[in-house]
Design a protein around this nucleic acid. Structure first.
Length: 427
RNA sequence: GGAGGAGUGGCCGAGUGGUCUAAGGCGGCGGUCUUGAAAACCGUUGGGCGGAAGCCCCGUAGGUUCGAAUCCUAUCUCCUCCGCCA
């Protein structure tokens, strides 16, 4: 949620910022409901105040044994509850409506985000590494996976249908190797604490992260239990401290987590139907931070660095792209995508998305910290980023390090995890 | 699935209808004392809305009442025992 106060104090500016995204938003309903709510609040407060005063008096008189006087006041006070109930009912309704609308307003883009109308306006920040030139016709990862006997899409389809994968032998070992390599790097070198959270959560959890109520169609729901499967570890990690007050000295809190990710991919029919690129179920290692507000944008830069380090060490060429206002996710104020070079597609493809959600999720989840020296609490900022999407990393390794016969030379950092230096075509 | 118990402020914990809407302790902060520190002692210390007065928050949601942490109902979570089970 964005701050209601911001909307009430400066609606024009909020509307202007929101209009930089693709959709348009009308804030007049929110303004009206907020006004109504504070009126009801004041009226209710006055009634409650009166009731409290009279009740106290009844108590005093009873103690003094003045039963008759107490009775008189009692009957006067008895008129209040009915009126109060009416007001409270109306206020509850108004508040529910207000919240419903607020929950569907996205975060405001940061001033540093390039303004644009489509992903074509995303800004390339830097390019790292050079795509290798091949003197033979490159195969894509689907061909390589079959040739090497490490990916079996037909078997996956038998089990679960389209958009699933089945890895075997060195394929499944490579997946496991990548997960371990990434976790070891982020915990060992970058100072993140490893978390293994639940992969599903309640509606409340998904509302806090911003995935509900607006994006239910993108999620798998577990009926009849009411759980949703996490499309990213960002969801459980955001909720680890829901409703908590953190100590300032514990910030920034840096977490990383391997989880499977479940996505319905509603509306993506016909897109990336081939291969490991877009699946209903994939593995990801996620990076996550809770920070003080002043440090969140600096922490975003270092988060991008941490994710990029994985690609560096694997020897994969990539570029960093700053998403424009139209391409920004719902909860994000600023997002950098890392795009890895895929020879099989002759293109850079997203392999990590790193976002600063500022106080947007923290407000929904009520995650605050106590400021040293001053009274009260303040909302933290939350950041998340892939470090990295494991399946797409496997795609990049297969395609970038293939030999003419299909053999794949593994990056040196993976040798110890794989127990070998290459995946050979079976003779 | 069966039986029982428990959810109170950062933490522990008292409080079973009305002396302030939470005693006391720990922790935190400030101070006295001290060369400094510890100890001791004194003071202070939850969250939300509001300019303020004031209002709300004792797991959550309802209910009873002039008045609910306290009584009733539902629900969630945790614990113990039994059963089942990876």
């Amino acid at each position: 949620m964005i701050d209601l106060k911001l909307i009430l104090q400066n609606p024009e500016e909020v509307e202007k910022k929101l209009s930089l995204r693709r959709e348009t938003y009308d804030l007049s309903g929110i303004q009206e409901l907020a006004k109504k709510r504070s009126q009801l609040q004041v009226q209710g407060d006055q009634l409650r105040s009166e009731r409290n005063r009279l009740s106290k008096e009844v108590g005093n008189l009873m103690r003094q044994g003045k039963k008759d006087e107490a009775g008189t006041i009692k009957s006067e006070a008895a008129k209040i509850p009915a009126r109060l109930e009416e007001l409270e009912k109306e206020q509850t309704q108004v508040e529910a409506g207000l919240r419903e609308q607020l929950l569907r307003i996205p975060n405001l883009p940061d001033a540093s985000v390039p303004v644009g109308t489509s992903e074509a306006d995303n800004r390339v920040e830097r390019v790292i590494g050079n795509p290798r030139s091949f003197d033979f016709k490159v195969k894509d990862h689907v061909e390589l996976g079959e040739l090497l006997g490490i990916i079996d899409f037909e078997a996956a389809a038998r089990i679960a249908g389209a958009r699933f994968s089945l890895l075997k032998g060195d394929g499944s070992r490579l997946e496991r190797a990548l997960i371990n390599f990434m976790l070891d790097l982020h915990t060992g070198e970058h100072g993140y604490t490893e978390i293994l959270p639940p992969f599903m959560g309640s509606a409340e959890t998904f509302t806090a992260s911003g995935h509900l109520p607006k994006f239910e169609q993108d999620l798998f729901k577990v009926e009849p239990f009411g759980f949703y499967l996490a499309p990213t570890a960002e969801v459980p990690l955001t909720n680890m401290y829901r409703g908590q007050i953190l100590a300032e000295e514990d910030l920034p809190k840096k977490l990383c987590a391997y989880t499977p990710c479940f996505r319905s991919e509603a509306g993506s029919y016909g897109k990336d139907v081939r291969g490991l690129i877009r699946l209903h179920l994939f593995d990801k290692v996620e990076l996550y931070k809770f920070t003080r507000p002043e440090q969140s944008f600096a922490e975003l830069e270092s988060l991008v660095k941490d994710a990029g380090k994985v690609l560096d060490l694997l020897g994969l060429p990539f570029r960093v792209v700053s998403l424009c206002t139209a391409d920004l996710g719902f909860a994000s104020a600023k997002t950098y995508d890392l795009e890895v070079w895929l020879p099989g597609q002759n293109a850079y493809r997203e392999i990590s998305s790193c976002s600063n959600c500022t106080d947007f999720q923290a407000r929904r989840a009520s995650i605050r910290f106590k400021k040293a020296g001053s009274k009260g609490t303040e909302l933290v900022h939350t950041l998340n980023g892939s470090g990295l999407a494991v399946g797409r990393t496997m795609v990049a390794i297969l395609e970038n390090f293939q030999e003419e016969d299909g053999t794949v030379k593994l990056p040196e950092v993976l040798w110890k995890y794989m127990g070998k230096k290459e995946i050979k075509v079976k003779g």
